[in-house]
Simulated scan of single mutants.
Amino acid sequence: MDDFERLRGRLFGIAYRMTGTATDAEEILQDAWLRWQDVDVSSVQNPDAYLAKVVTNLSIRQLTSARARRELYVGKWLPEPVLTGRAEFDALGPLEVVAERESVSFALLLLLERLTPAERAAYVLHEAFAYGHREVAELIGTSEANARQLASRARKRIADEPRRERPVDRAEWRKLVERFLAAAQSGEIEALERVLAEDVVTTADGGGEVTAARKQVIGRERVARYVIGTLQRFGAGIEPYLIEANGGPALAAALPDGVVAICFIETGPDGLTDLRFVMSPHKLRYAIGQLSRIEGLSDLSW
């Protein structure tokens, strides 16, 4: 097997964790593959390190460019979902232990957005892929001392960010989400409020392509009214499905002709704390492509 194909999963994993979008990760891999074709492979002593360096630096360049574009983004920007939990959904490789799942969790990808591109590269390479600081330095083109400092600074910045989510008990998560769905679909505002935390936050990413709130909706009563109002206006024919995405449980909303939203729902001691709706068709394209490999959403289970 060609070295590039052997390493494809690892390379995609680096690019996705770096950029937060599967679309960018695929483009980075395509660019890296073209560069690989121009290389005299016999002269490359360590293809693993060589290709990891190419992908890392392409990711840094892409992330730097993306930062400027996101300043003009319509509404709130959210990462791009990747379906996980089945052999057919192997883009991110096996997510068999908690640390592996957390490294692609939606909540962490959002926190990584707070880092500089260099900090993000050092953090991803060291924490998610277990590269030593000397190896990280070689991959991003800096000194070992600076690579160590970048990783340390990134860890501190992430640790200092307030995180409201807690480890997911899937049975409890499912119970809460089913109560949320029942109340939302029935239009019972008081019942819906009972499953929401007082300071619950809803974020919707429509990317200017579909109707979505451009600002976050905050607070139990406002979120309950927003969710029910949105379903009453746009929810006709939508079916909810419980799926796994980014290593954890998520909710997919689908019409007969396809998925229209994937929602990541965080829970806390007092109920649902964060509802993050990815609704941009552009950002759903990768997950929809993954779904084409199986019978459909009804075939998913977790």
Rank of each mutant, 00 (worst) to 15 (best):
M1R: 14
D2M: 12
G9K: 14
A15K: 05
A15R: 03
M18S: 06
T19V: 09
G20A: 04
G20K: 04
D24N: 04
D31V: 04
V39H: 11
S42H: 10
S43V: 02
V44G: 08
Q45R: 09
A52L: 10
A52S: 15
K53W: 10
V54P: 08
V55N: 00
T56Y: 06
R69A: 06
V74Y: 08
G75T: 01
E80I: 14
G85S: 10
G85I: 06
A87H: 04
E88N: 11
A91E: 13
L92P: 06
G93E: 09
G93C: 08
G93D: 07
P94I: 00
V97M: 07
R101F: 06
S103N: 11
V104A: 12
S105A: 15
L115Y: 14
L115K: 12
A118E: 14
R120L: 02
A128Y: 09
G132S: 14
H133K: 12
E135R: 00
E138D: 06
G141W: 12
G141C: 10
R157H: 13
R157T: 13
I158L: 02
R163H: 13
R164T: 14
R170W: 09
A171L: 05
A171I: 06
R174F: 08
K175P: 00
L176R: 11
F180W: 15
A182D: 12
A184R: 09
S186P: 03
S186K: 08
I189N: 00
E190Y: 11
E190F: 12
A197P: 13
V201L: 12
T202Y: 09
T202M: 14
T203V: 15
T203A: 15
G206I: 00
G207L: 04
T211N: 03
K215D: 15
K215M: 11
R220T: 00
R225C: 03
R225V: 01
V227W: 05
G229P: 11
F234E: 11
E239N: 07
G247A: 08
A253R: 11
A254G: 08
L255P: 01
G258A: 06
G258S: 08
V259T: 12
V260M: 00
V260N: 03
A261D: 10
D270T: 13
G271L: 02
F277N: 10
S280D: 12
S280Y: 01
H282V: 14
Y286T: 13
I288T: 15
S292Q: 11
R293Y: 07
I294S: 08
S298R: 14
D299A: 15
W302P: 04
